[in-house]
């Protein structure tokens, strides 16, 4: 039985198809978020990725910022629950999850069954989110995806002291005009994100293992800075960006099993 999970974020749509709640058979990521063609396209892409059609799909569950706007799903759930479930599937030992999304950052504590025990989410502020990195990459004229690799060459990390994205932007410009090496500036930017997010994580309490999910987890510079800030190891799975979609697919599977069981009982009673 195939179920689909779709995570409609503010900048990216992710989708996963699983078979019988245990094997990932399809994956897709498109760089368009809610309010664009992203959701429809990611659905088609994930089907194409494993040669399935919509008729093969038992149930679809949607999560993420755009979860209320997608009509083709059977149900929706919050990204908090879906990330908890998804990370629990790929990193079963994780008890603390850090998820840095396009416009928010979250720290979750989960139990061994992948259920949420507690969470904190940043307030309305771009600092410490993917948006902060986007803005900084824009000023530095580099691709966001390259920030991690470039920062690996840093010799001396510079301090970006302003938390506010707008002020940090002018701070970075002034560093550039002082000819500070771009890799050192990027390392400072990563540390700035890590500091902001670490405050959330500390507020929620750290229980090991700590894992990171979401697209920003692919940025090794941010992960390294988070390790330094939290003084603990952080686990990252290659499917980290898909964790929310995976959780959604797992919830869809649980719901489908429950629905099938109900209709079976009903038939038996007839």
């Amino acid at each position: 039985m195939f179920t689909v999970g779709i995570d409609i974020g503010s900048t990216t749509c992710k989708s996963v198809i699983i078979n019988d709640g245990s094997i990932i058979v399809g994956r897709a990521i498109v760089p368009f978020g809610t309010g664009t063609i992203g959701p429809k396209r990611v659905y088609q892409s994930v089907l194409d990725s494993c040669g399935l059609s919509r008729d093969d799909i038992e149930r679809t569950l949607v999560t993420g910022y755009g979860r209320f706007t997608f009509d083709d799903a059977d149900n929706q759930k919050s990204e908090m629950s879906c990330h908890a479930k998804g990370v629990n599937f790929i990193i079963p030992s994780a008890r603390t999850i850090i998820d840095i999304g396009g416009q928010d950052a979250k720290a979750l504590r989960i139990n061994p069954n992948g259920m949420l025990e507690d969470f904190v989410m940043n307030d309305k502020c771009a600092a410490g989110t993917g948006k902060f990195l986007d803005v900084m990459a824009g000023i530095l004229n580099v691709k966001v995806a390259d920030l991690g690799i470039i920062s690996e060459h840093s010799q001396v990390e510079v301090s970006i002291s302003n938390t506010c994205t707008v002020f940090a932007e002018s701070e970075v410009i002034s560093k550039l005009s002082m000819n500070v090496a771009i890799e050192d500036i990027i390392a400072g930017i990563h540390r700035s994100v890590a500091k902001k997010v670490a405050a959330l994580v500390y507020r929620n309490g750290i229980v090991k293992d700590v894992a990171m999910s979401g697209g920003v987890a692919l940025n090794k510079g941010v992960v390294g800075a988070m390790r330094k800030e939290l003084k603990t190891d952080i686990l990252v799975h290659e499917d980290c960006q898909l964790a929310g979609a995976l959780g959604a697919a797992l919830f869809a599977w649980e719901e489908a099993v429950k629905a099938n069981r109900c209709s079976q009982t009903q038939k038996n009673n007839e």
Partner: peptide, 24 residues
């Protein structure tokens, strides 16, 4: 914990928080 802010009409962050809390 949800933030009360009289200067905006945007409740999306609270919507996610409240839904997650309910699911929890």
């Amino acid at each position: 914990c949800i933030e009360i802010d009289q200067s905006t009409q945007d409740n999306e962050q609270s919507r996610t928080k409240i839904q997650s809390f309910t699911e929890m």
